[in-house]
Simulated assay, not measured.
Amino acid sequence: MKIWVPSQAAADVLADLPGVECAVFDGTGAPPDGLEEVEVWVPALIPFGDLANLIPRMTKLRLVQTISAGVDPYLPHIPEGVTLCNARGVHDAGTAEWAVGAMIAVLREFPHFVTEQREGVWAYRFTETLADSTVLILGYGSIGEAVERRLAGFEVAEIIRVARSARPGVHGQEELPRLLPRADVVVLLVPATSGTAGMVDAEFLARMKDGAVLVNAARGGVVDTDALLAELTAGRLRAAVDVTAPEPLPPGHPLWSAPGIMITPHVAGSTPASQRRALKLIRSQILRYLSGEPLRNVITGSY
């Protein structure tokens, strides 16, 4: 069985499996020989740009196992008879850790103090804190649960959980208009879908309370960049974003210099822990596939 994997480390964790032939393809350069024989493809974390041309030529393809939680680049191109699985759980720890760190950094004004340090200025000031605050988690799945676990020690007054559909302890997305004004921090963890594209628009942001913090660990396209820029420029809201639209954010883009925002270059889930868990998932899924056991994290319909 021929498998494409994104790294030599991934090939190494499958090296002892009989009948498995691995080729490393990280999405850059020309694809390896034998494209028509590939049965399982584990794409690189950064999606390959020419999926519409590549996948139809993979005539023996039966499984695409991403190492990302998001699968939006692949969904339009997966043909009938091919199973698509994501990496739910692999990046939970890193993304949740980034989200909580970003909240603290913005509330405690760490970027401001770093600037003051560079200039040799000792400027004492009060800052806000997570203690006694209300945090709204929008997109309450496994990463949302991981964020809540990490908030447990920070004496947060209330956590408001919101998902696409209501369930016990979790509000439905239709309740957002009345919930947003209560939150000091709004954390975005929704997947990129047609239903979430641009959902954080001017109306959404206007419902957030003055001084609230928007934390985007989802996808850049979830947020209307112009609407966010307007709120930041007015000084009414603050933000921490690991994802942007466009992405990468080009030099000179006004978001770089907007007041009250902290930007990181899509690194939330890029940690050694995520790498270890991705390799463990790859091996586990291939073993399941070879033995005919049910696969984990199968994407069916909307996700």
Rank of each mutant, 00 (worst) to 15 (best):
residue 52 A to Y: 13
residue 70 G to I: 15
residue 233 T to V: 10
residue 135 V to F: 13
residue 119 E to T: 14
residue 227 A to W: 02
residue 17 L to S: 01
residue 241 V to S: 06
residue 83 T to H: 10
residue 92 D to E: 10
residue 161 R to H: 11
residue 83 T to G: 08
residue 247 E to Q: 05
residue 212 A to K: 01
residue 24 V to D: 00
residue 4 W to Q: 02
residue 40 V to I: 15
residue 270 S to G: 06
residue 32 P to H: 08
residue 3 I to R: 01
residue 299 I to Y: 09
residue 74 Y to H: 08
residue 56 P to N: 14
residue 301 G to M: 12
residue 178 R to L: 13
residue 145 E to W: 10
residue 246 P to W: 08
residue 142 S to L: 14
residue 285 Q to P: 02
residue 143 I to S: 06
residue 234 A to K: 07
residue 128 E to R: 08
residue 41 W to N: 01
residue 53 N to S: 15
residue 117 Q to I: 00
residue 225 T to P: 04
residue 43 P to M: 14
residue 45 L to R: 14
residue 285 Q to T: 14
residue 268 A to P: 01
residue 175 E to R: 15
residue 7 S to K: 08
residue 100 V to M: 02
residue 218 A to T: 12
residue 226 D to L: 12
residue 280 K to Y: 08
residue 283 R to M: 08
residue 274 S to Q: 06
residue 172 G to W: 05
residue 148 E to H: 11
residue 75 L to F: 03
residue 262 M to Q: 07
residue 259 P to G: 00
residue 12 D to I: 00
residue 89 G to P: 04
residue 142 S to M: 14
residue 205 L to T: 01
residue 19 G to H: 00
residue 177 P to C: 11
residue 33 D to H: 06
residue 7 S to A: 10
residue 66 T to I: 13
residue 25 F to V: 04
residue 58 M to Q: 10
residue 71 V to H: 02
residue 298 V to N: 12
residue 244 T to A: 03
residue 59 T to Y: 11
residue 181 P to D: 09
residue 229 L to N: 08
residue 183 A to T: 13
residue 1 M to Y: 00
residue 137 I to H: 03
residue 278 A to M: 06
residue 274 S to L: 01
residue 127 T to V: 10
residue 250 P to S: 11
residue 275 Q to R: 04
residue 221 G to A: 12
residue 56 P to E: 13
residue 112 H to G: 05
residue 38 V to G: 03
residue 65 Q to M: 11
residue 170 V to M: 06
residue 244 T to H: 01
residue 127 T to K: 12
residue 18 P to A: 06
residue 172 G to P: 03
residue 211 G to S: 06
residue 21 E to P: 03
residue 285 Q to E: 12
residue 184 D to N: 14
residue 122 W to V: 10
residue 199 M to K: 11
residue 257 S to A: 05
residue 218 A to L: 04
residue 201 D to Q: 09
residue 61 L to G: 04
residue 196 T to S: 04
residue 278 A to Q: 00
residue 271 T to I: 00
residue 299 I to N: 07
residue 169 G to Y: 13
residue 99 A to V: 03
residue 155 E to A: 15
residue 121 V to T: 14
residue 53 N to I: 05
residue 52 A to I: 14
residue 280 K to R: 13
residue 169 G to Q: 10
residue 257 S to E: 00
residue 234 A to W: 09
residue 39 E to I: 15
residue 156 V to F: 03
residue 123 A to M: 11
residue 47 P to K: 13
residue 233 T to Q: 00
residue 42 V to G: 05
residue 279 L to A: 05
residue 84 L to G: 02
residue 82 V to Q: 06
residue 102 A to G: 03
residue 60 K to W: 04
residue 231 E to T: 11
residue 70 G to L: 12
residue 294 P to G: 07
residue 7 S to R: 04
residue 301 G to V: 09
